[in-house]
């Protein structure tokens, strides 16, 4: 290889694909200076992000509790290695909470998605009063979750409006004890979640829907596609990414369901509506076994992280295809 060709080959190495290339001296110096200037900020960020995690890990390996009489930094004196984790595996209440969280998610997220998509499809066209309906539809999302919880707590009282309305249809007095029946309480909690979070789904999906090119829709129509075919062959594929994002947001949020639910049922009756967040809250505030809480939190974090990585890989693969 001639010197010129070698030089060309070296320059060619600087591709978008990121093939390796010898950095010039100036570039090396510039990047070193950059590192020196940003180092303090980077350390600070690292500290803020990592510190709570490391602290959790430390405490999760001990029997420490705020009642132990020693500061958390001395939790090591109560070292019990992996006992908290092995307890967790056999903790029925924990698995029950996980199961209920999964049920809520399996019902609420698809319901919110389908309702949101239906509403978004409706709002993609123009109709009289669209702006007013639009504002009304978005309101539930603006309500503070605790307030929403209180609202639904009132609605589902045995002497509350839900039963009153039902009695009109039934033709006699209805006194269903919504929040004291294990099954109905879970249903009520899910209804509240769907009420509050369908608007978010609607908003995201509407944004995706109006982004579907109008000309392509017209082209499909002219080629003989009916509205259902247009929806399945043009709209849905074009919205794939935004649908995945919307679902991901709701799945993550739904996993953390807490405030509305806690105000409505407090996790009860018994443990009938105890989701994972409610369970952690109770163990933290009532049982005060913080070493165990730390173990639960870390276990969930690890499982969620693995799920998130997996989902992101699938998403990237879907986009490539």
């Amino acid at each position: 290889m001639s010197a010129a060709a070698a030089k060309l080959a070296r320059q060619d190495g600087m591709t978008i694909a990121g093939a390796k290339r010898e950095p010039t001296q100036a570039e090396t110096e510039a990047s070193r200076l950059g590192l020196r200037l940003t180092l303090p900020a980077q350390i600070l960020v690292l500290f803020i992000a990592l510190f709570p995690l490391l602290m959790q890990l430390y405490i999760s390996l001990t029997d420490w509790s705020p009642l132990s009489g020693v500061g958390w930094w001395r939790a090591g004196e109560l070292w019990n290695s992996f006992a908290n984790y092995t307890d967790l595996v056999s903790d029925k209440r924990f698995w029950g909470a996980i199961w209920r969280t999964a049920i809520v998610m399996a019902v609420c997220v698809p319901a919110e998605f389908l309702l949101g998509l239906a509403l978004a499809t409706l709002f993609a066209d123009n109709f009289p009063g669209k702006r007013v309906f639009y504002s009304i539809l978005l309101m539930p999302m603006m309500v503070v979750p605790a307030v929403a919880g209180y609202m639904f707590f009132m609605l589902f009282q045995s002497g509350g409006p839900v039963n009153d309305i039902l009695s009109v249809f039934v033709g006699g007095p209805v006194t269903i004890a919504w929040l004291s029946d294990p099954t109905l309480a879970l249903a009520a909690v899910m209804i509240a979640d769907i009420w509050q979070w369908t608007p978010l789904m609607f908003l995201i999906l509407l944004a995706g829907l109006v982004g579907v090119p109008e000309d392509q829709m017209k082209a499909a129509t002219l080629l003989g596609a009916n509205s259902w075919q247009r929806f399945t062959t043009i709209v849905l594929p074009k919205m794939k990414t935004i649908i995945i994002i919307a679902l991901a947001i709701r799945v993550i949020e739904n996993f953390k369901i807490f405030d509305t639910l806690y105000i409505m049922t407090g996790g009860g009756p018994g443990v009938a509506t105890e989701t994972i967040s409610v369970y952690i809250y109770k163990v933290t505030t009532q049982d005060l076994i913080w070493g165990y809480v730390a173990a639960i939190a870390l276990a969930i974090l690890i499982v969620l992280s693995i799920a998130a990585v997996f989902a992101m890989k699938r998403m990237a693969a879907a986009r490539e295809a």
């Binding site: 000309d215 392509q216 017209k218 499909a220 129509t221 002219l222 080629l223």
Partner: peptide, 29 residues
């Protein structure tokens, strides 16, 4: 309706279905 008129239409920006292959575009109708 426009779907029932049996006219071919070529749009200024072509309105190609970008999420499909050439084959899927051609066979769409």
């Amino acid at each position: 309706p426009m779907g029932g008129r049996g006219v071919g239409f070529v749009f200024q920006n072509y309105a190609i279905f970008t999420h499909m292959t050439v084959r899927q575009n051609l066979s769409y109708g």
